[in-house]
Design a binder for these strands. Structure first.
Lengths: 208, 208
DNA sequence: GTTTAAATTAAACGCTTGTTTAAATTTGTT
DNA sequence: AACAAATTTAAACAAGCGTTTAATTTAAAC
């Protein structure tokens, strides 16, 4: 799939991604972006029209292939619980290696200010939920999963756990002695992912 | 406990809380606050020194009594699982009725920009974690809770689930048909709280 | 009622913001 | 080489920013 953006645009988008993630949309100025990207301030307006539309472009640029990944997972020949585990791993991996944009989505698209641009993002979330539903209902039919779980609340538990951990990065770095970026990333890939998988598995299977 | 802020300051703090929560710290101007609070722009500098210190004051103003509530819970005569359930209820209730400040904490204190002011907030989090640890270790000694859970990751699951739900409010309002503010709040108080309690209980008790 | 301190105001400060303009430069096409 | 289109530039724009100033009003103390 070819991108709709040229090299120059992509350069700007990736600088903007880093800065937006670091300092927020409002906390980042176009001059700031221009300086880091070593371009003239006018280039952002020239290529994207406005700062707001730069943000929109960034989201399109980064979220366009998640749906495919999920569809592929759905069609794999796996037990429901393994599909769930893979889905969790996919989510964490993907968000973790695209931290910038997801942090931006998390931050900017929850305030009332930007509800208009919310449409495309909302559709993405609805699709993701549908995929999760399909897997869980499959497990329920097989009698493996309990039936009194509230499916739409499982995504908040998966993503919320990750985000809350990551949003409090300095705190957990200190608490868990994750002195280097590698140690931190490794902790997410192993311990945090396992914790979330363990949590969701227990929730889906445990009978009180 | 008497507050260190006079009536006028509290008035300003509460307006700032609403606006910061709505539009972020950078997205809110002092003139904005002044207009809503019907005061002169200079009053913020007069009473708080600067915009940054207004934020600090706001956090002190809102988080000063959480520690006491937790200590009281610890000393109640309850089974560990009931303490956990009560702790979850306490968290959700408290955060839900102080949405503004927690949204601000969630948003503003995760960026590297404000790591200096992070100290007091970090101490608060460490204290909360200690309380949770005490309860869980009690349950483990009694043989009720499994011992291979990663305790510091439980808070992210509790709070993360709530936050992720609440940060995607428009999405879930639409998905779950929560047309009024009452319906939304009620859903949090009942279904969401129950989901989190059910999740943590399963995680703590389920044996694979 | 006068004096002193606190609270409030309007105005201005210098600086940064997002965006536009119009000129200069580079690139591609014939 | 000459032309046209696309790109890049520096400069300017009006508007908003956080903060300070100095004058004025209000409140408290005597």
């Amino acid at each position: 799939m070819k991108s709709n953006f040229n090299d120059k645009q992509i350069e700007i988008l990736e600088v903007a991604e880093v800065l937006f993630a670091e300092k927020g949309f409002d906390g980042t100025s176009i001059r700031n972006i221009a300086k880091v990207a070593k371009i003239n301030v006018a280039m952002v307006s020239y290529y994207f029209g406005s700062k707001e539309r730069l943000l929109e472009s960034l989201i399109v640029y980064r979220t366009s292939d998640l749906k495919n990944q999920l569809d592929n997972l759905l069609q794999e020949d796996l037990e429901p619980i393994d599909k769930i585990n893979k889905l969790i791993e996919l989510y964490i991996n993907r968000i973790n290696s695209n931290r910038g944009i997801y942090r931006i989505l998390h931050f900017e698209f929850t305030s009332k200010k930007r509800e208009q641009n919310l449409q495309a993002f909302s559709e993405l979330k609805k699709g993701n939920l549908k995929s999760l539903e399909t897997i869980i209902e499959e497990g329920q039919k097989k009698g493996i999963f309990r039936k009194d779980v509230i499916i739409p609340l499982i995504t908040p538990t998966i993503l919320g756990t990750f985000f809350h951990f990551h949003m409090n990065k300095p705190f957990f770095e200190n608490l868990l002695n994750l002195k280097t970026e590698d140690l931190y990333n490794n902790y997410i890939k192993t311990n945090l992912t396992k914790h979330i998988q363990q949590t969701i598995k227990a929730l889906l299977i445990y009978e009180s």
